[in-house]
């Protein structure tokens, strides 16, 4: 049992997560990010379910959330396989790469301008080089044959 103000606050958080995820789904073109946003929407729903469940003191909401977790896992597994397949075909993780499904006479939508600034991408942390592979030794392999 939780008090009503907590319920309302939790519902607000759930709604906020849901709407943010929605905006992400609609705008981001990277398939992976789109899936992240979908998961974000699921989180919003989970929060809402749990809030109501606790408010009513009923376990149904929480049980449902467990199932949401399960289904999200399944969804991620299957969807990621498809994402990989799509990547294998187009070499991109771009949702707009599948524009060929459009009506025949329509022109293709092309990104007119791309921001120049961050074309290089982030610089990832690197490790210092270590454990260099030693050069092959022909005589060493010859020796081995006699073993």
């Amino acid at each position: 049992m939780i008090p009503a103000p907590l319920l309302i606050n939790a519902l607000l958080v759930g709604a906020g997560l849901f709407c943010l995820g929605l905006v992400g789904i609609l705008t981001r073109r990277n398939l992976i990010v789109m899936f992240l946003c979908a998961e974000l929407m699921l989180q919003g729903v989970s929060v809402t379910l749990v809030a109501w469940s606790r408010y009513h003191g009923d376990w149904g909401g929480q049980v449902l959330t467990v199932f949401v977790l399960t289904v999200a896992a399944c969804e991620a597994a299957v969807a990621l396989v498809f994402v990989l397949q799509a990547f294998a075909r187009t070499g991109r993780l771009d949702a707009a790469a599948w524009q060929s499904l459009r009506e025949e006479t329509l022109p293709r939508v092309i990104d007119r301008e791309l921001p120049e600034g961050d074309a290089a991408g982030p610089t990832w942390p690197t490790l210092t080089p270590a454990g260099v592979r030693p050069p092959e030794d022909a005589s060493h392999t010859l020796e081995r044959e006699h073993v």
Partner: peptide, 10 residues
């Protein structure tokens, strides 16, 4: 690098 489709949105 940064893919072009990560730099624009729909």
């Amino acid at each position: 690098g940064m893919a072009p489709y990560d730099r624009v949105t729909n």
